[in-house]
Design a protein around this nucleic acid. Structure first.
Lengths: 234, 234
DNA sequence: TCTTGCTGGATTGTTGAGCAATCCATACGC
DNA sequence: GCGTATGGATTGCTCAACAATCCAGCAAGA
């Protein structure tokens, strides 16, 4: 800056707007749309996604559809079978175990050692997710409770303060939504964790990070066991 | 199987061959080729990758090149600037900090709590990486020492026994290679860790997981500081 | 009945060409 | 020096086409 102008600060604040200026590409928007359909459950696990049908339905070229599908395959939301097509992923018990192995490492560690575990903003997101879940439960909106639960675990990893970890957690949680879509009784599954999340949040707020981490690990283990049990009789 | 034939078992063993039958697609091979060029350092960070040039050089269509580039962008090996092109990523200090925040959570936790930390096969990979590094150092092959170092940290995460974590670690390490390519003096950086890796491996072999995890964290912190210092005078 | 082989139709994998939008460097005018 | 046109190059996306592959169904043969 050769000139000392007050516009300097104003311009700096605009850097956040870059993401908005740079419109998302068509392929990205297609990927978002398909991902939404999948995580919302409108496309069943195992369902097929023909390129031509998507191309026609979304009004974009088949090449663009392919680009979007490839991205979702990389995210494990879809699986590609060569020369056969792409399908909505059908997570099996081993996938559940693998996801929980990863979560059991990452989430308690984020609570125990996260650099932002003292940051009011990061902790506030925990509290916000808890309240979001409580509000949704009050309206008997159990899909929303499930969403709040995901926000809570995302906020837990957010305590680490690493965008790369956050991103990885996003993938793991997206996979978990596929798991839930294979299960019935969303309510029975998510309801017990409302109080658990509150307990964890209180411990974090009180700075009792070691105990909070222990609670997180404990809840993850029971959730995994519950899901695996549900998978067993299927 | 309606018929009771001994071929049943034999056929079951063939399921492992599926991966070989399914040849990799052209786009995937292009992605592998470009990724190799980048991590080997033949394509400098910041370097540009015009689609047409790649298309011509590799003898594949520009559409296929685009598909490969998109995948590498998702892996953070390349970055896309809309309407300008894709470039080899240039990790900055903040990227280094973020990667180490993630590694400092994952790696010590994998050593401390990994389900396979007692598994001789998984631990053997640690030992193998140590010896690989020693052998490379004996030949003054410092790029190979760097490679062995990466194998070591990959083996550390392998103690967790989660393919999803392994995959994530692969992305983080690929990004680290880009970081190293911005630094000179590969030798001075990697040599001190030869002994450190040996120490960690001994502790893991002895079942002293807590101390091993502490060593891992300590080494990661010094490495991060060293890299950030090198970035500072640049 | 069970297996094998074939055939037609559908979908994927990949190519090539083409066009609007955007960016960049250069030259121009003031 | 500074803002503004201008032209070339590249990207983002589309469209059309074709070979390779897969699948369902059917016919022939053991």
């Amino acid at each position: 800056m050769t000139i000392a102008d007050p516009a300097g600060a104003a311009l700096a604040s605009l850097t956040e707007a870059r993401a908005l200026v740079a419109r998302t590409s068509t392929a990205e928007r297609v990927a978002d749309a398909v991902r939404n359909e999948v995580v919302e459950g409108r496309l069943r696990p195992g369902g097929r996604l023909p390129e031509q049908a998507l191309s026609h339905a979304l009004g974009v070229s088949r090449n663009t559809v392919r680009e979007a599908l490839s991205q979702l395959v990389a995210e494990r939301v879809l699986v590609r079978e060569p020369n056969r097509g792409v399908f909505v992923a059908v997570p099996d018990a081993e996938a559940v175990r693998d996801v929980y192995r990863a979560r059991l490492l990452i989430e308690p560690a984020a609570v125990r050692e996260g650099e932002r575990a003292g940051d009011p903003e990061a902790v506030g997101r925990l509290r916000a997710a808890v309240q979001e879940g409580r509000a949704a439960a009050a309206h008997d909106d159990w899909p929303a409770v499930a969403g709040a639960n995901q926000h809570f675990h995302r906020a837990l990893v957010g305590l680490a303060g690493s965008v790369r970890l956050d991103q990885q957690m996003g993938l793991l949680l997206a996979e978990m939504r596929l798991v839930f879509h294979r299960m019935t009784s969303v309510r029975e599954f998510h309801e017990p964790y409302l109080d658990g999340n509150d307990t964890i949040t209180r411990l974090v707020e009180a700075g009792e990070r070691e105990r909070a981490a222990g609670e997180v690990a404990s809840y993850l283990r029971t959730a995994e066991a519950q899901i695996l049990a549900a998978f067993a009789d299927l």
